[in-house]
Simulated scan of single mutants.
Amino acid sequence: MADDRHEPEGGTDETLDAVAEALRTAETGVTLTGAGVSTASGIPSFRGDDGVWERHDPADFHRRRLDADPAGFWVDRLSLREAIYGDLDPEPNAAHEALAALEADGHLDAVLTQNTDGLHDAAGTDRVVELHGTNQRVVCDDCGHRRDAEAVFEQAADGDLPPRCNCGGVYRPDVVLFGEPMPDVAMNEAQRLARDSDVFLAVGSSLSVQPASLLPKIAAEAGSTLVVINYEETPRDANAAHVLRADVMQVLPAIVERL
Rank of each mutant, 00 (worst) to 15 (best):
F178V: 12
V52H: 06
A190W: 01
F153Y: 15
G48Q: 09
A95I: 05
D148T: 08
E189D: 12
A222N: 14
F61D: 07
A246M: 04
D237V: 02
M249W: 00
D160E: 14
A186M: 03
A151Y: 05
A219W: 04
M249N: 15
S208R: 14
P211A: 12
R127I: 11
P58A: 08
A35I: 08
D67S: 13
V228R: 00
S79C: 05
G29A: 03
H242D: 04
D148P: 00
G86M: 14
D237G: 08
C167A: 11
H145C: 11
A40D: 14
L193A: 07
Q155M: 11
R77D: 13
V128Q: 07
S206V: 11
D141N: 13
C165E: 09
S205G: 08
S45V: 13
E97L: 12
L88H: 10
L23F: 01
P211F: 08
G86Q: 14
A123W: 09
M187R: 11
D76G: 07
F61H: 07
T225L: 06
E91P: 02
T25F: 02
A212W: 10
D121M: 04
T39H: 05
F73S: 06
G168V: 09
G34V: 10
E91Y: 00
N135Y: 05
Q191L: 15
D76C: 02
N166C: 00
D89M: 05
D57T: 09
L193S: 03
D50I: 11
E54V: 12
C143L: 10
R236T: 10
A35S: 15
V175T: 15
G179E: 06
D247H: 05
V227A: 01
H120E: 14
A95M: 08
P44I: 03
R245L: 03
T28I: 05
H107C: 04
T28S: 09
C165H: 11
T28E: 08
D4F: 14
R147G: 12
G144C: 09
V111Q: 02
F46M: 05
V203N: 07
G72W: 08
F178R: 03
A149V: 02
N115H: 11
V251D: 04
R258D: 01
P58Q: 07
S224Q: 10
T15L: 13
H96C: 06
D89S: 15
R137P: 01
S197M: 06
I229L: 04
A186L: 09
E189H: 04
T39W: 05
H62C: 07
D184G: 01
V111L: 09
A2C: 03
V37W: 05
D69F: 06
A194I: 00
E91G: 05
R164F: 00
A83K: 10
F153G: 02
S206K: 06
D174I: 06
A157I: 06
E97W: 01
T113N: 07
L32Y: 00
Q210C: 00
L80K: 05
A122Q: 15
A22T: 05
R164H: 00
E232T: 13
T33C: 09
L161H: 06
P92F: 04
P173W: 08
D142L: 06
N93V: 07
E221Y: 02
N93E: 03
A100R: 05
L252Q: 03
T39L: 01
L226G: 03
E7G: 09
E7T: 15
